[in-house]
Amino acid sequence: MNKPAKAPLRYHVRHDTRYDYDQPVGESRQLLRLAPRELPWQHVRDHRLEIDPEPARRRCFVDGLGNLAEMLNFERDHDALFIRAESWVELRPRTLPALDRTPPWETVRDGLEYRAGRRLDAERLEACAYLFESRHVRVKREFAEYAAQDFPAGTPLLAGVDRLMRRIFAEFTFDPEATDVSTPVTEVFEKRRGVCQDFAHFMLSCLRSLGLPARYVSGYLLTRPPPGKPRLIGADATHAWVSVYCPGHGWVDFDPTNALMPDLEHITLGWGHDFADVSPLRGVILGGGEHEPEIAVTVVPEDEFATLYGTAQLPGLASA
């Protein structure tokens, strides 16, 4: 007897970013990547932005990696900037492959190596772009040596990736004070401490150092408050994990921060070679003085929306 299909789950995501400047900003250009991607298992029912002050110009586009992006131009003096991105996202269960029934990892590596005269299809050509070093990911012998014990000869690719993910989870400590966005991945390896972004960059460094294509995924993770405590607005954060290319299965996600394969609690914003490709917000300003962003993220299941926000209205769903 076939099991009944699981119903899709809906989430509301609110991502607030605020800058308060010491001095007026005369001109500013901001690049946003705050719109979730449309995927086979993820449907974006609604997405909207609230911006203060109103930009002089806005331009939406799809970047070279297929992520949705928006450019904002501000041309008048302003002392603060507030951007709120709100999305309703529907997730369906993913079809996860049997890890032990995937190709041997050496076969995948050898099949993507450059050879004169070899022609690759579009899918494999895309995968080859994620074999190399990038701003936050290094290809080095020490990373390959660390990963080697999880990839003995003949190991099915995804079984090896799963073992590597679980070893990173066991051997590294989550510590928000240990690193910042500029901490090199070599230092993360030495300290064995960091946050989700660091663990993703380290796992990518290990996989690419073995000759395996892997990309950085940016998004959100549903978190749960401590037992007996209410869910709080702004208590969540952005999240990061990795995706590995496996012939016959496409790209398969792994979350080393939590030692699991993402399914119904991971919301995907976009992906790239590393964090620099998918930073939720980055820009340049003229003026401003000293300033630090205040960021508040809230991910809430549909059935908790009214309790959290004090209204039965579910904005965005009626128009989706």
Rank of each mutant, 00 (worst) to 15 (best):
G26A: 10
Q42H: 06
A56E: 06
V89H: 02
R45C: 15
L81S: 08
H43F: 10
E38A: 10
L96W: 05
P36T: 04
L65E: 01
E90L: 08
W88E: 12
A35S: 07
I83L: 08
R94G: 06
L125S: 13
V62Q: 13
V44I: 11
E75T: 11
A35N: 13
F61P: 01
L99M: 13
P55G: 06
A80D: 14
L31Y: 08
L120H: 14
A56T: 11
Q23T: 12
F74Y: 15
A85T: 01
A80E: 15
W41E: 07
L120S: 00
P55H: 04
I83E: 02
V89Y: 03
H78I: 03
L96F: 02
L125H: 00
R48A: 13
T102A: 07
W41H: 14
L120Q: 08
S87M: 03
R45V: 13
W105A: 04
E54C: 12
H43L: 11
E126C: 10
T107R: 13
I83N: 02
L112M: 08
D110K: 09
L31D: 07
I51L: 11
E113Y: 07
A122K: 06
R57I: 03
G64E: 08
A122F: 03
P24D: 06
L49M: 06
A116F: 13
F61S: 08
L31R: 07
P36N: 00
R59A: 05
L65P: 00
C60V: 04
A127Y: 01
P93T: 15
R76I: 02
Y114T: 06
D100R: 15
I83V: 15
R45N: 15
N73M: 07
F61N: 00
V89L: 01
L72W: 01
L96V: 13
E90D: 12
W88R: 03
R124M: 10
